[in-house]
Design a protein around this nucleic acid. Structure first.
Lengths: 337, 337
DNA sequence: GTGAAAGCGCTAACAC
DNA sequence: GTGTTAGCGCTTTCAC
């Protein structure tokens, strides 16, 4: 099966193609530039020569010349969160569809947002999307100075010079409260889980405010860092509040799943008979049989589309005032509430 | 909070820094090249000037010049599979750690491996890792010709010029069979799910061969494309084979989870009393309470490390014969078997 | 150790 | 429509 390795041919450039096709190298360049003015006949001649030589445009060289690479950085964290993984997947696909080339940097102990963003800037990327922690303000300013659009996903509204995209967390929290109230729950609990950051806070607050409107104060349970384990942790408290027929809101499906799963297996609680649970995101696992989780869905493809729009707008017009765009959410009714 | 946007400064180049520091631009270049010969004093002087001007090396220009960009392409599919997402995460992190810059392309309806690989080649990437379908042989040859190392993850051994990395699927299948036998199961079933591709096949075959060694023929159940749904589908058949005290092997945790979950909720089956189930990969969901899935674990960080090693080796020595490296696997004993 | 000059492969005025 | 020329910003011999 393994033939001899092909001899490494010396890299073939536009000049090689030009010579072979008996044209100038600019003609070659034009032949590979959509919408440039070349006669069809020479274009074909050039394409043929290129084909024979195995020529491919060097996008690095083109990038240097055009001062734009079409590279777009994505800075992510917590890819073990299924929703985040889906977001990245959808974003990467949509970027490619729009002619960009996604780079993926994941935060970890050794590399923080700032360092990664700095590398991206050195590559003269056409834009950056950040789904992890927000970067320091000063480097945002530097992006602005360099004309590199920055989009923050699900982050607070406190950074200058950048565009933001969020799910409609307020509506989401409200929908959750309303669904639980309509299901006839008498008391309300929200689980606060810190790794969710800004969005989680907003969702929980909106939930609590909505129940307060009906005169019922929601209890807040705070739990630790890991999402599923956090839900499991919350189960201990929730198990003791069952007599009030509670409705529980978790600002993330994984937290909700940890809660539901633990409540049933460890405490023999029946859902939705004894309590209702609502999650957030509608990850694939939410529909699994053991949970059949009612949840608030936000579409990752909407996110991707809007994010790329934001990027493109700002490339065309860097002077635009910073914008925040919201993605709609809706309730997905299953059996847990 | 929103100050006025900083005026877009014209891009500052090495020449600007050079003038400001009263040196030549080659000095500036050296100052930013680790291990170049510059006196400490001028280096400092240059760094200071660069700092003041807000200079950052243009990696695109450097890439053009050095004929290598340190960009490494990752071509992935099915990021909704948690294991794949973890693999990408681990790989991206390790690449950065080693000084590379990961690009992420996800296969979809509009973009197949070949097209995406072709784009990558145009960026003169330093290497490509493919965790999705294998690309056509001819483009592999082209990578070889261009001196771009290619690593295939979990793919069959049928492509020339490329390196491969696999989990030890044979050992994994055997371990599963042995664990089930030790648990006293009397009959054996393996679920075949096609989206798993090559690795899935090998695992199932190894499982069947191992039970055959003990004189018991394993039954194979073939199911549809979606992993969890495939497991649920298998549940229907498995539910009718319970009297034989079966041990079931699923070559992916998500399939196993679909099976376990459906068996319990739809058929009231008790696990492990009535049957044993073993999955593969040890994704986070495998340890969730509803399943407590016994599974075969393969470390994503091992994968990442070996993959990058493979890449680096071949960059240093492109003439190397194609290699296949195996990552070890082991049994994670939980409650489902 | 430092500077001058050449060149990486491409695009974009500008002439013709 | 096509060729000529001049860079894009960097690294790298090669002298000194």
């Amino acid at each position: 099966m393994n033939k001899v390795p092909p001899t490494r041919t010396s890299p073939v450039t536009a000049l090689d193609v030009a010579r072979r096709a008996n044209v100038s190298r600019s003609a070659v360049s034009r032949a590979f530039t959509p919408g440039a003015s070349v006669s069809e006949s020479t274009r074909l001649k050039i394409l043929k020569a290129a084909e024979e030589l195995g020529y491919r445009v060097n996008l690095v060289a083109r990038g240097l010349n055009k001062q734009r690479t079409d590279l777009v950085g994505m800075i992510a964290s917590r890819m073990d969160n299924p929703y985040r993984a889906q977001q990245i997947d959808a974003l990467a696909k949509h970027l490619v569809r729009k002619g960009f080339r996604p780079m993926l940097f994941c935060i970890d102990e050794e590399n923080n947002v700032e360092q990664l963003l700095s590398i991206l800037l050195n590559y003269r990327v056409s834009g950056v999307v950040i789904t992890s922690d927000a970067p320091p303000a000063e480097i945002c300013a530097e992006c602005a100075r360099m004309g590199v659009p920055l989009v923050l996903v699900d982050r607070a509204d406190d950074l200058p010079f950048v565009d933001r995209i969020n799910g409609d967390d307020v509506k989401g929290g409200q929908l959750a409260a309303e669904a639980l109230m309509e299901a006839g729950r008498q008391s309300f609990i929200a689980v606060r889980q810190d790794s969710l950051g800004y969005s989680g806070q907003v969702r929980v607050s909106a939930f609590a405010e909505r129940t307060a409107q009906e005169g019922i104060k929601a209890q807040i349970i705070s739990v630790g860092q890991d999402e599923y384990a956090g839900g499991a942790e919350a189960a201990t408290s929730v198990a003791e509040m069952l007599e009030d027929n509670p409705g529980v809101f978790c600002p993330s499906d994984t937290v909700a799943l940890g809660l539901v799963d633990t409540l049933r297996t460890r405490y023999g609680v029946e859902i939705p008979r004894q309590l209702g649970v609502i999650g957030y995101d509608d990850i694939p696992q939410a529909s699994w049989n053991f949970a059949r989780l009612t949840t608030i869905r936000q579409s990752v493809t909407d996110f991707a589309r809007v994010t790329v729009d934001l990027l493109c707008d700002r490339m065309e017009n860097p002077e635009l005032a910073p914008r925040t765009r919201k993605v709609d959410v809706h309730l997905v009714q299953r059996d847990s509430a």
